[in-house]
């Protein structure tokens, strides 16, 4: 670790925090530009003006926008996301009860998807131009072109309806045996993996093809190095940055993917919570979920940046 790397890492961290703040501002502005009046909408057209005014005061809607913004931001920083407009319970508690489920789903998917994608991407790059490469290429184009719910419904149709291996809906709570776990997570994980493996394999392949066409790889070949040595010793160390970027970027697709998957499998995670929040226009809940997802995305992107900085020999050895 040297001063340059330290400074770069610090810059990335500061940039991430500033971006998060910017995102928070955007989310606040959008959710407060609402043409209607939240209090009026909640109470319905028949409500008395007094009742509406009372709710407005209770929600803090009588304050000027910038004051509401600062208050909201300050509470967000402290982890207080307010109360749900629909059932009045604290948003933090709602999210807390669901967050674990989503993390488990995302974690299992990442564990399955990353190795599969890396193997596909690397082998395709190494055998660039071969039939195998073209099959992988065509397969991944198909996979990224297909909506997640097609994959999910096809999976349900095949594995739940036709083969009856797994239940069509995921119900947590009956996780007594390993088989239960597999049966519960199989379809959601399969669907998510399908979607992100394609993205990740494509980007990994592109990164490695780039490195493999550089002069020092040709030089290694002309020194008599074998294929394995060229890939492992020469190419991969130089592809770490781009590959880390590919992984992080693809994992961020998970964030979008879980929204569909949790809905279709009725999985009790926060994405489902958010979709329900949007349907009921429960803005505090939507704001909090959005911030959580954006935070996760920024975390991934920042981690990829950090990996790229740490893997860069020009920065590491000055």
């Amino acid at each position: 670790m040297n001063a340059t790397i330290g400074r770069l890492l610090l810059t990335r961290l500061v940039a991430a925090i500033l971006t998060l703040w910017f995102v928070a501002t955007v989310v606040f502005v959008i959710t407060n530009l609402l043409p209607g009046d939240v209090a009026q909408e909640l109470l319905g057209q028949s409500a008395t003006p007094e009742a509406v005014a009372g709710l407005r005061k209770a929600l803090g809607l009588d304050l000027p926008p910038w004051q509401r913004y600062l208050e909201w931001l300050w509470k967000m920083v402290q982890g207080d996301a307010g109360r749900s407009l629909v059932n009045g319970s604290p948003v933090a508690a709602l999210i807390g009860s669901r967050l674990g489920n989503s993390l488990i789903l995302a974690g299992i998917t990442a564990l399955v998807a990353v190795p599969v994608a890396l193997v596909l991407g690397i082998t395709a790059a190494v055998h660039r131009g071969s039939v195998y490469d073209r099959v992988v290429g065509a397969g991944t184009v198909l996979a990224v072109s297909v909506p997640e719910f097609l994959v999910a419904s096809a999976a349900v149709l095949v594995f739940a309806v036709q083969l009856r291996w797994v239940p069509a809906l995921s119900q947590l709570g009956r996780l007594e045996t390993v088989l239960d776990v597999v049966r519960t997570f199989a379809l959601p994980v399969l669907t998510l993996t399908f979607v992100i493996v394609a993205q990740m394999a494509r980007m990994t392949r592109a990164a490695l093809v780039d490195v493999l066409s550089s002069s020092y790889i040709e030089m290694a070949r002309l020194k008599g190095a074998g294929q394995a040595r060229i890939v492992v010793w020469h190419a991969l160390p130089n592809a770490i940055g781009p590959i880390a970027n590919a992984i992080a970027f693809s994992l961020s697709f998970l964030l979008g993917g879980v929204i569909i998957v949790e809905t279709i499998f009725n999985y009790p995670g926060i994405a489902k919570l958010m979709v329900d929040g949007v349907s009921t226009r429960d803005l505090p809940l939507v704001q909090a979920c959005a911030m959580l997802f954006c935070g996760a995305y920024l975390l991934l992107v920042t981690m990829a940046d950090v990996a790229a900085i740490l893997a860069n020999p020009r920065l590491r050895h000055r």
């Binding site: 971006t19 910017f22 995102v23 955007v26 989310v27 959008i30 959710t31 530009l33 609402l34 043409p35 961020s252 964030l255 979008g256 929204i259 958010m274 979709v275 929040g277 949007v278 226009r281 803005l283 939507v286 704001q287 959005a290 997802f293 954006c294 995305y297 920024l298 992107v301």
Partner: peptide
């Protein structure tokens, strides 16, 4: 560039929730 760091589906949900 800062707007890019809002995942697209999320952005969609927030906008639909609001408008």
């Amino acid at each position: 560039d800062a707007l890019i760091s809002i995942p697209s589906k999320m952005f969609g949900l927030v906008l639909v929730a609001a408008f």
